[in-house]
């Protein structure tokens, strides 16, 4: 894995929101097929970091490379690159005025210029895979949160992304729906999808992630394998954080 070019690479990335130095000298690389879990207290910059990778947020300095290529800044090239990186949001963000099926086919039809039939056939396969094919002709508001999030994953997959970003995909869900979404993500990981996942789900991290990165106050404070990090955190900040999410 180390010999290959990383799918995602951040070099010395800095970003400010006014006086707030939200990302500080971030260096990070994600190899092909790697599942990286990003963890840390609220407000530490995890979402911002995730969003810079497909340029929903711009950066002040540093470099972001996708398969060795610098992130385009605008236009068709940027749109093209975004199409190659899936993103799953905390609040699902399904297109509220479109049916589930249309949510999934929109990208392939508009961006990949797939014919309608082919796009719908593939979309139905994806919806079957995430277990919401029976809802294909409903609108998002008629689905449960867990179903909506699985559709959101299918919508990303329809673009055949090189990597997928998940920003707290289960945080907005009722507890009984968390696992149905995590199961889909576990399966994706097993199939070799390159993933960056912001989550506090420790079991998920232990089961599928290769590496856990701990962020606090805009910095990467610590990183390691899931067992290294969860069982034997090195820094006081990480210990404190782990205690807090374990409910001690």
């Amino acid at each position: 894995m180390s010999a290959e070019i990383p799918v995602i690479e951040l070099r010395n990335v800095d970003k400010h929101y006014g006086p707030l130095h939200v990302l500080q000298h971030i260096n990070l690389s994600v190899g092909k097929g790697e599942v990286l879990v990003l963890i840390g207290p609220s407000g530490s910059g995890k979402s911002t970091l995730c969003r810079t990778i497909n340029r929903l947020e711009t950066i002040d300095s540093g470099e972001i490379l996708i398969e060795g290529q610098p992130l385009p800044q605008e236009g068709k090239e940027l749109a093209q690159m975004r199409a190659e990186i899936g993103m799953v949001f905390q609040s699902f963000n399904l297109f509220a005025h479109k049916t589930i099926l249309d949510n999934v086919t929109l990208g392939p039809r508009e961006v990949l210029k797939m014919p309608k039939d082919a796009a719908e056939k593939e979309a139905m396969e994806l919806l079957t895979r995430v277990g919401v094919d029976a809802q294909a002709h409903k609108v998002p508001a008629q689905l449960s949160g867990g179903q909506q999030q699985r559709v959101a994953i299918a919508r990303s997959l329809a673009m055949h992304p090189k990597a997928m970003l998940f920003d707290e995909p289960t945080s907005a869900l009722d507890p009984e729906m968390i696992n149905e979404v995590l199961d889909v993500m576990v399966e994706l990981a097993r199939e070799g999808m390159t993933m960056v996942v912001v989550t506090h789900e420790m079991n998920f991290a232990r089961r599928v992630s290769n590496r856990v990165v701990f962020m606090a106050d805009g910095q990467i404070v610590e990183e390691g394998t899931p067992s290294e990090f969860f069982d034997n955190p090195q820094t006081a900040r990480a210990k404190e954080f782990l205690d807090s999410i374990r409910g001690h």
Partner: peptide
């Protein structure tokens, strides 16, 4: 909601298409 724009951009729609396919139809309603 802002998330509609972000989701549209993230599947590779250009800002123009995002406006005409995602935002305007919802705004009209």
């Amino acid at each position: 909601p802002k998330g509609q724009t972000e989701a549209a951009l993230s599947i590779g729609l250009t800002p123009g298409k995002t406006m005409f396919k995602i935002i305007l139809p919802q705004a009209l309603r």
